[in-house]
Design a protein around this nucleic acid. Structure first.
Lengths: 224, 224
DNA sequence: TCAATAGGTAATTTCAAAAATATATGATGA
DNA sequence: TCATCATATATTTTTGAAATTACCTATTGA
């Protein structure tokens, strides 16, 4: 009766999600060489299957391939960080405006629910518990995604998801937790969205992103 | 001494470009099932190599994979066409404004040169010669790309290239040639860019894209 | 007549090994 | 000493075939 999501999933699919997550959460580090034999042993798959998913990550911009010299994890740099942040700003602000304009009560419910979960996690983080980074980041994504979910364009949502994950990788690498400031901005975002004040919401979002970039650059985690 | 671009290119790379081009130019039609054995014979490569490049096209959104039931060319629909056009509008307008602001004389030279080539091709098309569609479309891309080339963000340029090719596929499928109207808009775009009038340029670009969408939808080529 | 199931066929997915390419090592000559 | 070339090793790329999964057909039972 129920769809057993894992049952029909191929091992290529599973390994893809694993390696993708390992890159985003820094377990595979920027610039790291990805030797096929080593990956094959580590993830317990054949080289051909690995190459399939490596080609997917290549197009996503999470790894690079230099000629016939194999793959490596996409390096990080302050320039790239600025570009990714600017791209998120462009896509998310636009989607946010559209979504605020056409969101219904159902949408409001999703936004409120997502913020509730995120706020609870942020409270826990502020009390010193840093153990659940992945869950926290998932809630962060779910809130931002809920906000733009009524933008009306699947293409836009997909592009946003892709850039959000790259943005997330930089946050993880820099071990960013802006504490109360970020939590406040999330509250302001919620308030502006429910008031259907698109200009205010967009302004908060821009500040949210730019302050995060400044914060991480000051921390020096991206320095060579 | 010279880089022989084709010499070190793998057959996977070559086949990737071939199949990608076949999709964009409609030689592989929307919704068409891509049977591996058939492709293997047609493009003279092994199935494993094919699957690598098919996975790349998957992430690019040019093909779809449904469970363990193989690949097919991404179907087309009026909804998707609107989304792709809106995405191009968002990315290209933004990049255009940035580029007009920071472009130097070198940039102006590239823009003028690209327009010259495009205009020559458009003249040829207006005289009835429709034989060189691929070259025409390449010149069209080169002009639009030249305009935004000083936007300062490689990430933005990459995203634009990706969406432009998807946009192009719809144009090809609908056999669009708006003739003098499109040529005029290109001239206006050139003029506004050289005058550094970003607002005017963006306005022309928006009209350029929206008129093209309306034109193709009226033609009925995307109807089911 | 129809639904359900079993069996066979066709397709995709995965693997292990061969072929091609790149990198490292050492020998040669100026 | 240094650059150059040849050889050997390591790594990637490509292949053909085995394993798995989906699809089609026909048979059974109600």
């Amino acid at each position: 009766m129920l769809d057993q999501v894992g049952s029909t999933e191929t091992i290529g699919e599973k390994t893809y999600r694993r390696i993708r997550s390992d890159i985003i959460f820094g377990r595979l580090t920027p610039g790291q060489k990805l030797r096929l034999e080593r990956l094959s042993a580590q993830y317990e798959t054949s080289i051909a299957t690995l190459r399939e998913l490596l080609n997917r990550l290549l197009v996503e911009g999470l790894i690079v391939a230099e000629g016939q010299r194999g793959f490596e994890v996409m390096p990080v740099s302050p320039e790239r960080w600025h570009e990714i942040a600017a791209m998120r700003e462009l896509l998310e602000c636009h989607a946010l405006r559209q979504s605020i304009e056409s969101g219904d009560v159902e949408w409001e419910g999703r936004v409120v629910a997502a913020h509730h979960k995120l706020a609870a996690m942020e409270k826990q983080l502020l009390s010193g518990d840093r153990s659940q980074t992945e869950t926290w980041k998932r809630y962060d994504w779910e809130f931002h995604h809920a906000l733009i979910s009524c933008c009306g364009s699947k293409a836009l949502l997909d592009a946003h998801s892709a850039i959000f994950d790259k943005y997330l990788r930089y946050q993880i690498i820099a071990v960013v937790f802006r504490g109360e400031a970020a939590a406040r901005e999330h509250r302001e975002l919620l308030k502006a969205a429910l008031k259907r004040d698109a200009d205010a919401a967009a302004a908060v979002l821009v500040k949210h992103i730019r302050d995060c970039v400044q914060y991480t650059l000051k921390s020096g985690a991206l320095a060579p």
